[in-house]
Design a protein around this nucleic acid. Structure first.
Lengths: 235, 235
DNA sequence: CGGAGTGTTGACGTCCGTCAAGTGGGGTGG
DNA sequence: CCACCCCACTTGACGGACGTCAACACTCCG
């Protein structure tokens, strides 16, 4: 019966990412405790979560929206190390400062934990720490794929690789193939892929001319069904 | 008194990396249990620990020596994702297969755990899992630095970055500056830095001509004291 | 309608890759 | 102990992929 102590709803129970990120490791009773130390954070497009070098006071779940993680060289050169989407975790760091900046690419909502509180939860629920290790291992594997992109792939291979990866995260499948609503600018893509905006633009044009993709507008990319299959099996 | 049950030595107690890797998280009593599931593994130079795609049955501590981790594209292009030295941990993977190959660059000894056994230990000693998360976070931060190298730095910057990093891990400091005994070939360096052996060679030559390094022989690089300082402060 | 921002296209330059020919040091064997 | 070879490394000549700089196009605003 609703309203009784045993069945009262708390926010996490109805969360869009209840079965992802760190929450997936906990049952409802345990999640109630985690819920108590969580704070909702809302960000507009281009809003800053934290800067490289800030004290790493908080950790976050991504609930809705999209983020970019980036590092800067002193002269301004930028490398984007990852794009985050709902269900991703943010803020793992052994040092006491963040090793990268995190910015919203679109309107975004996060679930925030203070490091101190979360550490206590980890001690209480070892399952949580196990889940974090899984997430970290995943990130590590992704980073290694990214290293291969940057170190050894050509511009066109880089672009196709990330398009396929984005298709898995944010793609809509229909009878014609995949449609991707890009949350990021050409500059963001370039800084992720180790290229310039001009090269990204030229490469997309080349793909369009070859019939590999369609671009109804700047932020939308369609991959026809046949092409997608060919790509997954290796060109 | 030596020889009694309470004080009997077991191998881990005298291990060179007792205070590093995952063992640092445990006291002597706990370490005794970990010791029971560990197997020593010895490798010659160029020996293979495992291949990309193998079942990830084991995890390892690096005790002595040096390893390279690498991924291959179908056409043979190689990206080295990391170099490992004593105290590093090897084998973190969420999937049931390794995401990269691991090969010894020099004579190497490892401490091997089966995944199944180690998982049991993690349940028994949450401190161990916490330690693994720390190690994974560290690796993640390293991977992000590596992404910056590959995506945004020039050949000479790439080389200087890795030389400084190697100096920290395997460098000998004396009155003249740092001396690095490189465990890896030019090809390994190239595949780590996203370059070719020719470019690595030319870049080292250039550094030598500019007086930034000395190379008594192929595998030895010296960084004079003044140069090292200039590099750390940003050229 | 006009301006600003993002994306595209073009002309040209450059850094690094490719291909090929040395060079030198360590190991083997005579 | 020396001669030879092998392999890793170096060096040179050249080319190409991508970067740079600049002009232009499209769209979203007011």
């Amino acid at each position: 019966m609703p309203g009784t102590a045993a069945s009262r709803q708390f926010p996490c129970q109805t969360c869009e990412v209840r079965d992802k990120v760190i929450c997936a490791a906990l049952d409802d009773e345990e999640l109630r405790h985690l819920s108590a130390i969580a704070t909702a954070v809302e960000l507009k497009a281009e809003g800053v979560v934290f800067h490289e070098g800030d004290d790493s006071t908080y950790l976050f779940n991504v609930v809705t929206g999209s983020l970019r993680l980036s590092k800067l060289l002193p002269d301004g050169r930028r490398q984007i190390t990852g794009f985050l989407f709902p269900g991703d975790f943010l803020g793992l760091s052994i040092a006491d400062v963040y090793a990268y900046s995190a910015e919203a690419m679109t309107e975004t909502s996060l679930c925030r934990f203070s490091r101190a509180n979360l550490t206590k939860m980890l001690e209480r629920f070892p399952k949580l720490e196990h889940r974090l290790l899984d997430l970290a291992s995943n990130e590590l594997a992704q980073a290694q794929d990214h290293l291969m992109i940057l170190g050894r792939k050509t511009a066109i291979e880089r672009l196709l690789t990330i398009l396929l990866k984005l298709a898995e995260r944010v793609g809509q499948r229909d009878s014609n193939g995949m449609t991707i609503e890009l949350p990021m600018s050409r500059t963001d893509l370039a800084d992720y892929l180790g290229l310039t905006t001009e090269t990204v633009s030229r490469t997309i044009t080349r793909l369009r001319n070859e019939g590999a993709v369609k671009t109804p507008n700047w932020r939308t990319i369609c991959i026809p069904k046949g092409v997608e299959l060919a790509l997954r099996t290796g060109d």
